[in-house]
Write a protein that binds this DNA or RNA. Structure first.
Lengths: 247, 247
DNA sequence: CGGTATCCCCCGCGATACTG
DNA sequence: CAGTATCGCGGGGGATACCG
């Protein structure tokens, strides 16, 4: 059995479960409050259905998640057990570590669908209009298939759409994928990028002005990033890119 | 590249490094204060040299460890960087989780060499005799190759030996591997097992009486274990085994 | 649409051999 | 002894097809 280490050490035992590809991320998504197979697939765009199925089974066997009968369409919904909740805290710590010490992002890390998915979970609905608000996102540098997405908010409920939702947009946000991702991660300030024009917000002035407050950003965006030397380089190269594309 | 997830998510970035087999355990051993290639190999008996070499290289690239020139024989010594220290805390948390929620141990998890290695790091040298004390361990149920080990303590320095150290033993501890491992993990009380005879300590009465205090046990041994139902079953089957072998 | 079974390729890892 | 290069295999995981 490849996954065993031949050790009674508790770290080994934990690692047997978490060491397999994707497993930690599945726990993360469940801890984020998603419970359906399709939600997991959406949050983890590159996982294969069969792998996800296998991981859910293993996590269930390990006592990390519980499988309950589904209610509407889906066969099951998946919930963290108390053991899973404790694990979720560790996964969060790991995220903080990855934020502080993780490598710089490369193009292949960027994924518009996943970004939209993350953002729609962290909208400041308290200060958004109560009536339906449709925000269109256009990733100018992406191929057509990955260029257009929508986030709908209404009565403090937020929804992400991969297809045109059928009604007119209230705001349109146009940016390169990298710009919005960096703003999301907190590497650059959303407001700065908007005023510099690398992120454009089109629509009624009142909504456009309010938009930067709607987007809360990643939970970790306000956390300090280490290796400030690297970080400065990152921002410099990023800005250089923006400038050159604006020429 | 198999190790990438196509996500900018910080957990993904952390998992790219830690998701590979053995990596977390390498960090653990370094955090425990070992720094040499051979020490890592000893603490992780089933890792292959080539894999260990590859892991050290990756951890170095990731900024988790630092490779310094070695001083006596070895080419390098390996130290955690500040990033690695922070990671070490997470690995420790993971160990706590594994202790609380991890699966029961099976025979293949038990490893005498690793147990001796762990124990020799956690001897209560403050209360041990200052002069050289040699403790022989005999795992009665193991094949000859894995049956005999020694721990030497002298002046608050402790050393583990896989071969007869050349001088007489002061104490001899005879037990089945499972008994001592369970006592080490805190599943059962060392004192109880000694008084029941499943762990025997032979030698001068004064030393034999003191011995249970010398062995501090795993750092986690005093932590509560969850699923007490399972735990009781574990102890029952364990005791059943002892009894039947004592018949 | 929600989830599983099957196939098959590829690469991660262990074994072995090798160098300073 | 400390560490690295090479090779070969097994199984992890992605693609695809399939079922309810």
């Amino acid at each position: 059995m490849k996954s065993k280490y031949g050790q009674y050490c508790p770290v080994s035992l934990a690692t047997e479960i978490l060491g397999e590809r994707w497993t930690i991320l599945v726990v993360l998504v469940l801890a984020d409050g998603f419970h359906r197979f399709s939600e997991l697939e959406r949050a983890l765009p590159r996982i294969s259905a069969s792998t996800l199925s296998a991981r859910l089974k293993k996590l269930e066997d390990a006592g990390v998640i519980e499988r309950r009968p589904g209610e509407s369409g889906e066969k099951f919904v998946y919930f963290l057990t108390p053991a899973g909740d404790e694990l979720g805290q560790i996964v969060f710590d790991l995220g903080l570590w990855g934020h502080r010490w993780g490598r710089d992002l490369v193009t292949d890390d960027l994924d518009p669908e996943h970004l939209i998915w993350s953002m729609h979970m962290r909208m400041n609905t308290e200060i958004m209009p109560a009536q339906r608000t449709t925000i269109a996102f256009e990733f100018a540098d992406q191929p057509v298939k990955k260029r257009y997405f929508w986030i709908l908010a209404e009565n403090k409920k937020v929804q992400a759409c991969l297809k045109h939702p059928g009604f007119d947009e209230d705001l349109r946000v146009i940016a390169r994928l990298r710009s919005l991702t960096y703003a999301w991660r907190g590497f650059v300030s959303l407001r700065d990028e908007i005023s510099k024009g690398s992120i454009r917000v089109l629509g009624p002035a009142k909504l456009a002005r309010a938009f930067p407050d709607w987007l809360l950003g990643s939970m970790l965006a306000n956390q300090e990033r280490m290796y400030p030397g690297r970080e400065r380089d990152l921002q410099r190269s990023f800005r250089g890119e923006i400038n050159s594309s604006a020429d």
